[in-house]
Design a protein around this nucleic acid. Structure first.
Length: 747
DNA sequence: GGGGGAACTTAGCAGCAATTAT
DNA sequence: ATAATTGCTGCTAAGTTCCCCC
């Protein structure tokens, strides 16, 4: 009930234009304080100072929210980000619940890893068989474990030895893992265009078939019970499952859904069911709600069974053999059918995303490998052996007509090598960037309009890290833009604003319909050119009407091999991190907490530059208040401790040195004060960090834009354990960088 | 040079798992 | 031991770029 209400209200609140960006607290940048960053510091600073413009609205949003607690979701529901939040996706993926799995097993981390290891070594020789053998082994071991535990006691309390043992095991595991890691970065690269020499896999994993509704759950039309055909019922269920969400109330969504639903109906159904408003999915909806609830309330054992079943699927389908190395596949599961939900105001929202059959799937693997076997009674669309591409399987998706691929995990050689290369290109830009900047400044005076436009666009891409902005087909996707596709309506020129000259105000929806809002002081050449570009144009006309991304990239690649628009984003992100880390560092920074705050701030500067936003966590206000409460308690404790210390000192003085115990008491109290101070500091740092991070997503830049070698070197220099900034997945992905980076690495 | 397809990277969010607080 | 909170993973949409064909 609660969330539903929120959704409804926020829907109405659409025009309040409460916006993510506007509410950002950019105070971390005040601390960043660097003019040294040629483009980025300037940018971030301007972000900071220019948010004022919409502050009034911000305040309005804030106040309102205070009035209605638990409504943090409302805030991000401005015109620009409506759909981002509260979009709960219920998927068929949950279906495996129904898969009967008799073997109740427990997977202790130890047995798992043991098996993994064995699996690996056997795997080297033969890929197909070990998978099965191993599954059996896992079962054996695990059953034993479970029995043993049961007989010993119901509460598996760990003794000190056991804890120690576990710790050692972990270390050993880590070492083993390290040993068997494929150090591809030490190998010679393949000839251009060749992605692999041998590739073997089991094909994609298909979602379970649709399970018809039980006899006691019905669909009603005009109040009459209607038994739907299987196909129509399945699609009805997709809709029923989403009933809680705002978008089932949206006109476009409903229309698209209804059109597609009717397509799968029988002739009779189609004749009868003419109006979505007269459809009652209530019982179906309730049933699936109950199912979700049931799943939540499952016992530990049941959950374990489920987990085990999933693990089995991963073991069988989740890996491939690529040039004698076992590699994890990123997305080995075929996407289940459902209703398409694009982001933003997507014209295709609600359309039926069809179930993919093996007959739709192209397999790519080595000729001499054991070819994946399609599900019984089915065949593949095609089996090909193309080692100039990295995908293992592909299919065409029906909503947008795009091709979907099954590819390797980010920690694989194929992805890692590409990533490495990306950063190397970006580093190369470092040596060219001065010349390029000089040239585009020069080009702004060019006689030919397309060169001027190119220059100004490049200025934005470089200074603001905008995306290239390809043309998009109207009516096919949400209306979003990047640099080259900016329209006149997306910028406003201010000769003077907030005491600054030549300010360009940007306001547009970018990728994922995330709003980009920024007021940027620009050089007058840019300002004048923009004026010219906008002359005699309608708001909906393209700002850079003589420029396309292709032209821009062609020009860029002539300036430096491999240079494209997106390289600037990578370059500026990475160089900003490096510079910020340098500038934010100071001597008094001795605790890890402070160092990490510094790192996060540097990271945050990049995220702001790249406009990586997130919806503020739903529980943000609450958790912030909690933290503040904790800080307050700590402060009281500290005050108390100080008083006690004073008293102790006094006592010691009064009674002279006669009693050595008193001196000890003083020391103790001193230590207590110190401890209190440290804890308080840690909490305060945490609070600052969290507040600054409210609606900024650090993950995207960390994963895609920041050369990991900068971070690795920083950790080494600062003596910060790498685990503090990269989790396991990230360390895996960046294994190449972690291995090869020296303490003095410079981007 | 432009349209369209193919391949691959980038993106934010939901849901669950792990961790920490109570 | 349980509840709250945080962190991570999986998912898949939405970009960019390259390349081919005309």
């Amino acid at each position: 009930m609660g969330p539903e209400k929120d959704v409804a209200e926020s829907g109405k609140a659409k025009h309040k234009a409460s916006q993510l960006n506007k509410r950002r607290n950019d105070n971390e940048l005040a601390g960043a304080g660097g003019d040294a960053i040629q483009s980025t510091a300037e940018t971030t600073k301007s972000t900071e100072t220019t948010h004022n413009g919409k502050d009034m609205k911000v305040k309005a949003a804030k106040t309102e929210k205070l009035d209605s607690p638990s409504n943090s979701s409302e805030l991000d529901d401005g015109h620009f980000t409506t759909k981002k939040k509260g979009v709960k996706r219920k998927r068929i993926k949950d279906e495996p619940v129904d898969i009967p799995t008799s073997d109740a097993q427990k997977t202790s981390s130890s047995t798992k890893s043991k098996n993994k290891k064995k699996q690996h070594s056997v795997e080297e020789e033969n890929h197909a068989q070990p998978l099965k053998k191993n599954a059996e082994k896992i079962r054996e071991t695990d059953v034993k474990t479970e029995e043993g535990e049961k007989t010993v006691s119901k509460k598996p309390k760990k003794t000190k030895e056991e804890i120690k043992e576990a710790r050692e095991l972990k270390i050993r595991q880590k070492e083993e893992e390290e040993q068997k890691r494929w150090r591809w970065w030490e190998e010679e690269k393949y000839e251009a265009g060749v992605k692999w020499r041998f590739l073997e896999h089991k094909g994609p994993y298909f979602p379970p078939d649709y399970q018809p509704l039980p006899d006691n759950v019905h669909f009603y039309y005009k109040g009459k019970r209607v038994k739907l055909s299987l196909a129509a019922e399945e699609v009805a269920v997709f809709f029923a499952q989403m009933l809680d969400h705002e978008y089932t109330t949206k006109k476009v969504f409903r229309e698209n859904f209804f059109t597609d639903w009717r397509k799968v109906m029988t002739h009779e159904e189609r004749l009868f069911i003419q109006d979505l408003d007269k459809c009652d999915f209530g019982e179906i909806h309730a049933m699936y709600q109950a199912k979700v609830e049931e799943k939540k309330n499952m016992s530990k054992e049941e959950k374990l069974v489920l987990k085990e079943a999933n693990q089995k699927i991963v073991d069988e389908f989740g890996y491939c053999l690529l040039d004698h190395h076992r590699e994890r596949i990123g997305n080995f599961k075929i996407e289940p059918p459902g209703l398409f939900r694009g982001r933003g105001e997507h014209p295709k929202q609600g359309m039926l995303k069809k179930r993919i059959q093996p007959e739709d799937v192209i397999i790519n693997c080595s000729k001499e490998s054991s070819i994946p076997v399609p599900p019984a009674g089915h065949h593949w669309k095609e089996v090909r052996h193309d080692n100039s591409v990295t995908w293992l399987a592909s299919w065409t998706e029906n909503v947008q007509g795009g091709i979907k691929y099954v590819m390797l995990n980010a920690n694989s050689k194929l992805k890692g090598e590409k990533d490495w290369e990306k950063f190397e290109v970006a580093r190369k830009l470092k040596t060219h960037v001065d010349g390029i900047r000089k040239q585009y400044l020069e080009d702004m005076k060019a006689r030919e309009m397309h060169i001027r436009q190119r220059a100004v666009a490049l200025y934005f891409i470089d200074k603001l890290a905008l995306r290239a902005g390809n043309e998009k087909e109207e009516g096919e996707t949400a209306d979003t833009v990047g640099c080259c596709s900016l329209r006149v309506e997306h910028i406003t020129l201010h000769k003077q604003l907030d005491g600054k000259d030549c300010v360009v105000e940007f306001d547009f929806l970018g990728k994922d319909s995330i709003r980009y809002y920024n007021k940027v002081p620009v050089i007058s050449k840019v300002f004048k050119n923009l004026k010219i570009f906008m002359e005699n144009k309608d708001p909906v006309d393209e700002l850079f009407d003589r420029l396309t991304t292709t032209m821009l990239n062609k020009h860029l690649s002539s300036l430096m091999p491999g240079l494209t628009a997106k390289v600037f984003r990578t370059y500026n992100a990475s160089i900003t991190l490096q510079q910020q880390l340098q500038e934010l560092a100071n001597e008094s920074m001795d605790s890890d907490a402070e160092k990490l705050l510094c790192y996060n701030r540097a990271n945050r500067a990049v995220a702001i530059l790249c406009n990586h936003q997130r919806a503020p966590p739903k529980t943000f206000e609450q958790s912030m208040a909690n933290l503040q409460a904790k800080i307050d308690t700590r402060k009281e404790q500290l005050a108390l401790a100080k008083v006690e210390l004073k008293q102790a000192k006094k006592d010691a003085k009064e009674k002279g040195n006669s009693d050595p115990k008193l001196q000890i008491v003083v020391e103790k109290k001193e230590a207590a004060v110190k401890r209190c101070k440290e804890r308080l500091l840690k909490l305060e740092v945490q609070a600052t960090d969290r507040e600054e991070n409210k609606q900024i997503a650090l993950g995207t830049s960390k994963l895609n834009y920041l050369d990991p070698r900068i971070s690795v070197a920083w950790c080494k220099r600062m003596g910060v354990p790498l685990e503090k900034i990269y989790n396991k997945t990230q360390r895996d992905k960046f294994a190449w960088a972690i291995d090869m980076t020296d303490i003095d690495f410079e981007f």
